[in-house]
Design a protein around this nucleic acid. Structure first.
Length: 405
DNA sequence: TCTGCCGGGTA
DNA sequence: TACCCGGCAGA
């Protein structure tokens, strides 16, 4: 193991001191979104079944949830953002906070291995190529301990050595790290075969930050049929959630209608990535709600027709990346990855893997649940014994229509 | 624990 | 569409 790995891992830890992690776990032919939250400070329900204390990473491990509600919140209009170097985008306005499926316990050396083992993450086997996975928190008894500030030097260490300095000076770097949400590198294991590619994070100031080093075909850790799947959460704007809520409230026509998406032609693999994604993102910038989530993936996907996702969502593979975008409804997304070692042509009878995450929107994360009425309702006024005097809504356990606040 | 009511299921 | 109810979350 290269000597720099502990340092890299520690650095990564310090970068990742907030929110939650996720993994896509393949099991029984289905892919589940698994909460890897080591802090568990935002969603109680995610581990309620485990009945474990919040920091119980192990008990929490494998809990299948959908935690996208806490994924980095992007408030920046995509129109304002120069997206032409961003290789994937995910619009996740809301997903469930409640567990849907409980996956089998995650065994070491399974798909999550290397990234999450024995309550924490350990350096992955690919760290020597510039990837770092999550090490066990230095203080597991207090996982929510804030991460130490990063120095500009450490930030540089996080950068890919092979990448040139993009002109981001240390001052900017510091601002990025302290004033802006910290880009986090995620490692998600999938039973996919694909080729993570070079990532660049487009900063708000327009500068491009290389995030990963390219991973080449032929690297050996695809052997078990699984693949390390990385993505980077990018928080582009830190405006208040409440601000974002207003944009989710019903409903301007532009928000209510699904965004338009590029045609099949627009996402052909031979189309340049930047060009393609510009096309992809532009409609979103006009129609998507303000709390958008961007997931940056290191993944190669076969060029297949865009997959329409229920709920105004779409999965769009395009060469070396994919973008997933949707608005708040429950979603299912599927994708067909390209295998680096079994690179089959599309439509040649290959086994297409379907990756599914089912979820439903969180209620609290976006405050969509209206405040509870303060006044007396039918139930209080008439009592349970006079239930027939209640308004219909109250009888149906709906919002009271008679005593409206 | 009570209450309001959301979200989803059923007929 | 009407009706019902599990369950969440605030009081």
């Amino acid at each position: 193991m290269p000597a720099e790995e502990p340092q890299m891992g520690a650095l990564h830890n310090s970068l990742a001191g907030r929110l939650v992690d996720y993994a896509l776990k393949k099991d029984a032919g289905l892919n589940f979104l698994i909460c890897l939250d080591l802090q568990c400070k935002t969603e109680k329900s995610c581990h309620k079944e485990s009945n474990s204390p919040c920091p119980g990473e192990e008990a929490f491990a494998g809990q299948v949830v959908s935690h996208f509600s806490t994924v980095t919140h992007i408030r920046k209009s995509l129109e304002e953002l120069d997206m032409d170097k961003v290789t994937a985008a995910m619009v996740l306005t809301s997903l469930s906070t409640s567990p849907l499926v409980r996956s089998p316990p995650v065994r070491p050396n399974e798909s999550l291995n290397g990234s999450w083992k024995e309550g924490g993450f350990v350096p992955s086997s690919t760290s020597s190529s510039g990837y770092w996975s999550w090490n066990a928190p230095s203080d597991q008894s207090n996982p929510s301990t804030p991460s130490p500030p990063l120095s500009a030097d450490s930030f540089k260490a996080f950068r890919t050595p092979s990448q040139p300095d993009d002109g981001i000076d240390e001052g900017e770097t510091s601002n990025l790290l302290f004033d802006e949400p910290i880009p986090r590198k995620r490692k998600v294991s999938l039973l996919l075969n694909s080729i993570p590619t070079v990532e660049e994070l487009k900063l708000k100031n327009g500068k491009v930050l290389p995030m990963n080093r390219e991973r080449r075909v032929g690297e050996s850790d695809y052997s078990d049929g699984e693949e390390d799947f990385y993505y980077t959460e990018i928080r582009l704007n830190t405006d208040s959630v409440a601000d974002g809520l207003s944009s989710l409230s019903p409903v301007s026509p532009s928000l209510a209608s699904p965004p338009s998406f590029p045609t099949q032609e627009a996402i052909r693999p031979e189309t340049s990535c930047a060009k393609t994604e510009t096309k992809v993102m532009t409609p979103l910038s006009r129609s998507a709600p303000t709390n958008l989530y961007l997931v940056h993936t290191d993944h190669a996907y076969q060029a297949t027709p865009p997959v329409n996702i229920p709920g105004s969502a779409k999965f769009t593979p395009n060469g070396s990346s994919f973008s997933i975008s949707w608005q708040s409804p429950p979603v299912t997304f599927t994708g067909i990855p390209v295998s680096p070692t079994h690179n089959r042509p599309a439509g040649s009878g290959e086994q297409k893997q379907s990756h599914t995450v089912l979820s439903s929107p969180p209620r609290v994360a976006f405050g969509l649940r209206k405040p509870r009425g303060e006044g007396k309702k039918c139930r209080k006024v008439y009592g349970m014994e006079n239930r027939d005097m209640w308004c219909t809504a109250c009888r149906w356990k709906k919002a009271c229509q008679r005593f409206i606040d």
